[in-house]
Simulated assay, not measured.
Amino acid sequence: MNHKDMVIKVQQQMPAKRWNHTLGVMQTAEKLALRFGADVNKALIAATLHDMCKHWPVEQQAEAIRESGEWLDILDYDKQLWHAHAGAYVAARDCEVTDPEILDAIRYHTSGREHMTLLDKVVCLADYIEPGRDFPGVVHMRELAEHSLEEALIAGFDGTIQFLIEKKQIIYPLTVLTRNDLIKEIKLKQQEVIE
Rank of each mutant, 00 (worst) to 15 (best):
E150N: 15
M141G: 13
V123C: 09
Q169E: 07
L34F: 00
Y108M: 05
I194N: 04
D120W: 03
A64Q: 10
H83V: 04
A47W: 04
E195M: 13
I129D: 07
A29K: 06
R107P: 00
K167G: 11
D76F: 00
K9G: 11
L32C: 08
Y89C: 04
L34Q: 15
K187H: 13
L23R: 08
T110N: 14
G137W: 01
I129K: 08
R35Y: 00
R107M: 05
P100T: 03
F163Q: 08
E30L: 06
E146I: 00
L75M: 12
D181L: 04
Y172G: 03
A43L: 06
H140N: 10
S148D: 07
M6K: 13
R107C: 06
P57V: 02
A47K: 09
K187N: 15
T117E: 07
Q13A: 14
A92Q: 12
R93P: 12
A43P: 03
Y128R: 13
D99S: 07
D120N: 15
P173K: 01
K168G: 05
A126G: 06
M1I: 04
D99R: 12
V176W: 03
A91Y: 04
A105R: 01
R35S: 11
E130C: 08
Y77G: 10
I74T: 07
V123N: 10
E114I: 05
D127Y: 06
T28M: 09
T117F: 04
H85P: 00
I65P: 15
C53M: 13
Q80K: 15
P100S: 07
A92T: 02
F157P: 14
I8S: 13
V40T: 13
E70R: 11
V58E: 11
T160I: 04
A29M: 02
A38V: 05
D99K: 13
P173D: 02
G159H: 12
D94P: 08
G69L: 00
I45D: 06
I170W: 02
V25S: 01
R142T: 03
W82I: 02
L188Y: 13
H147N: 14
A155H: 11
L49K: 08
P57K: 14
I186T: 06
W56L: 13
M26D: 12
A62H: 05
E151K: 15
F163T: 04
V90F: 07
E192M: 15
I194C: 03
V176M: 07
W19A: 11
E151F: 10
P15V: 04
L182Q: 06
N180W: 00
V122F: 07
G24Q: 06
A88V: 05
A86W: 01
D73T: 03
F36D: 07
G24W: 06
D104V: 07
K168E: 09
V90C: 12
D134I: 02
F135L: 05
W82Q: 00
